[in-house]
Design a protein around this nucleic acid. Structure first.
Length: 293
DNA sequence: CACTTGACCTGTCCGC
DNA sequence: TGCGGACAGGTCAAGT
């Protein structure tokens, strides 16, 4: 579920909460969620102080004073939630999607700090993971070697975006946007929203896009990512920030999960849901007309 | 090599 | 209510 804006929101939240805290213990319910050996946890994690929290694409990197890092990928349903003291949540409060008490049945990993506060890694579908590794090895892992540029860096110009996308010139623009080796951090929500913003049909082959299309798409993508971060990310089902709160971006979404509702640009036209690149895809049939190849 | 599809998991929603 | 099937925002491996 979480894409760049959601992961960035979590990163910012954790950056306010974790640095300076000292890890005292780690437990997990499933080796897939946390594959490291207990001996490594004991040696490089327990007793370590949390330093800075970084993000690359949809991956969080939690720096430890031991020169190891915790790398976290939330995949579809992961959450990283910090609690200090009271492990309960305000039941019924509209800004919280978590209710009850942590840990709950989706809790995969619990990291306890010496002051009694805890970081919970919850992941209903068990696709996500958290793992410990030496900081110096991070740049060498396959993912870091292959991942594309960060779309919110100032160096991410429309020309750079075009250069990256045309690496996949014979596929649909939607599939190319979702490819993390092309551009970092874009997922289904922001692919659909940016294509609507740029008035490009998601099945359009990359090779048929014009420079004008790339320019408009670049602006639409950057704008939608920035807006979502400003709104604390989206929230549909599982995503919550570091304090367990929902984001509000989907309130501002133009097409995503809005099938049957009217297009903001065409009050007489309804948003349609189709399948492109194997994914649920939302378009306005009037704004986004299929291109002939 | 470029590209597409199915698998990984659990939970929810929808139609019967 | 209950049951089967489709589907869910991400990524790999395996297939064409």
């Amino acid at each position: 579920m979480p894409e760049l804006p959601e992961v960035e929101t979590v990163r910012r939240g954790l950056s306010e909460l974790l640095p300076g805290r000292v890890i005292s213990a780690e437990t997990h319910d499933n080796p897939k969620s946390f594959p490291n050996a207990p001996a490594d946890v004991e040696q490089f994690m327990n007793g370590a102080t949390i330093k800075e929290i970084h993000r690359r694409a949809k991956v969080l990197i939690i720096e430890l004073s031991s020169n190891y890092v915790l790398i976290v990928h939330l995949k579809m349903t992961g959450q990283l939630v910090f609690r200090n003291g009271d492990m309960r949540f305000g039941a019924g409060h509209p800004s919280y999607s978590l209710v009850g008490e942590l840990p709950d049945k989706s809790t995969r990993v619990v990291i306890t700090f010496t002051d009694g506060s805890k970081l919970f890694f919850n992941d209903q579908r068990k696709f996500g993971w958290m793992r410990l590794m030496p900081a110096v090895e991070v740049p060498n892992i396959d993912f870091m070697q292959k991942v594309g540029p960060e779309p919110l860096e100032t160096s991410f110009t429309w020309q750079l975006m075009k250069d990256r996308l045309v690496r996949r010139k014979n596929t649909s623009i939607k599939a190319a946007l979702l490819d993390q080796t092309v551009i970092a951090g874009v997922g289904n929500i922001y692919a659909d929203e940016s294509l609507w913003g740029a008035k490009i049909h998601p099945a359009t082959l990359v090779r048929n896009l014009t420079d004008k299309d790339f320019q408009v798409l670049h602006k639409a993508l950057v704008d939608v990512l920035k807006l979502s971060i400003e709104k604390g990310g989206s929230t549909d089902r599982n995503y919550v920030d570091a304090e367990g709160k929902r984001g509000s971006y989907l309130t501002f979404a133009n097409v995503f999960r809005r099938e049957g509702q009217t297009c903001p640009r065409h009050p007489d036209t309804k948003i349609v849901k189709l399948k492109v690149a194997g994914r649920g895809t939302h378009i306005c049939p009037k704004c986004q007309v299929p291109q002939k190849d």
